[in-house]
Simulated scan of single mutants.
Amino acid sequence: MQKMITIRSGGHNLSGALHLPEYRKEAIPLLVFVHGFVGSKVGEHRLFVKAARYFTERGYGVFRFDFSGCGESDGDYAGVTVTNQLKEVQDVVDYLSSIRGIDQHRITLVGHSLGGAVASLTAASDTRIKQLILWSPVGKPYEDITGILGPKAVHEIARHGSHDYNGFMISQTFLKDLKKHQPLKAVRSFTGPVHIIHAKEDEQIPKEHAVRYANSLNKRVDTRHVFEQYIDKADHTFSGYSFEDELFDKSLAWLEGNPVENLVSQT
C-alpha cells in the first residue's frame, strides 16, 4: 500500500510517500529514507522507489520524502541548507511517530550520500531514531560537496553568491552552512546500531568515509560494534540491478540481525 502524504515544515509543504506492508498483525518497523544533494524521494534510477517496494514486501514500512526545494516539495534549492534539512527531518519524524500501527521503538533512518550525513546528525540528537543505515555517506560535507561542484563553481559562488548547478541554484549560504556540520564526530553521540555500505567505485564521495564512520562509531562505549561493507564495482548511486539487489540484501541482512560474521567488512 502506498499513500502520498504532505507534511508541513516551517513555511513549506514536504511531499512524501508512505509504503506499508499489505499484511500486518503487529506494530510495523519503519525505515525513513533521506535523499542526498539535489536528490529526491524517487532517487537516481528510481532507487528509493525500488527500495521501498523491496522492504515493504518483507514486512517493513517505508517513508520517502522530498526536502524543500527538491522533487515535488515547496521551495527552491536556493533556500536549502543542511540546518534547514535537519529541522525538516525532525518534522517528518514528528508526523510519522503519530501514525497508528508504526512501531515507535523500531524507527531506522536510511541516508544516502549527503542524506547519510543528515541522517547521522539527526540520529545523534533524536532519541526516537533507533537504528541508522548509511549508503555511500558524505563524511565531510563542505569538502565532499565542493568536490562535486568543482573549483570553478565554488569560485563563482564566492564571487556572485550563487551558481546554477544543473538547474539547482546553489547559494553561498548553503556552502557556509555545510562548514558547521561534522557528522563523523557528531554520530558518536548516537547509541544505537549502525551499518555502513559504500560503493567501491564511488566517483563522488570517497569510499574511505565508510572506514572513517566505522572508526568514529567504534570509539563509543557499550555499543554494538560497527562494520562497513562495500559493493564491488558499484558507482555512487548503485546504478545497476545487481548493485541494487546487493545493497538491499545487505541492508536487510543487517536489519534482520544475521550473524555478525556475515557483516564483516569486505575488501
Rank of each mutant, 00 (worst) to 15 (best):
L86H: 14
L114H: 14
G116T: 06
L109A: 03
R106T: 03
Q85K: 13
T108G: 06
A78V: 15
P141H: 05
I145M: 05
L86C: 10
V110I: 14
G116S: 09
D76L: 13
T127A: 08
P141L: 02
P137Q: 08
Y95F: 15
V110E: 07
A124S: 09
Q104I: 15
S136F: 04
I129K: 03
T127M: 02
S98G: 09
G79A: 03
A119N: 11
V118S: 13
P141W: 05
D76H: 09
R100L: 02
T108A: 06
L86V: 12
V89F: 13
I107G: 01
D91Y: 01
V138I: 12
V89A: 09
G147R: 04
S73Q: 04
K140N: 06
T108S: 08
V80M: 07
T146E: 07
L134R: 11
D144Y: 07
L109W: 12
D144S: 03
Q85N: 14
V82P: 06
V89M: 11
I133R: 05
D91W: 00
H112G: 05
S120W: 08
G79H: 11
Y95D: 03
Y77V: 07
Q131V: 00
K87C: 10
L121D: 08
I133A: 12
Q104H: 13
Y77I: 10
V82Y: 03
G111Q: 13
Q131N: 05
W135T: 00
H112S: 10
T127E: 07
Q85V: 11
S113D: 07
V138A: 08
G139N: 02
D91E: 14
G115L: 07
T81P: 02
L86M: 11
I145T: 06
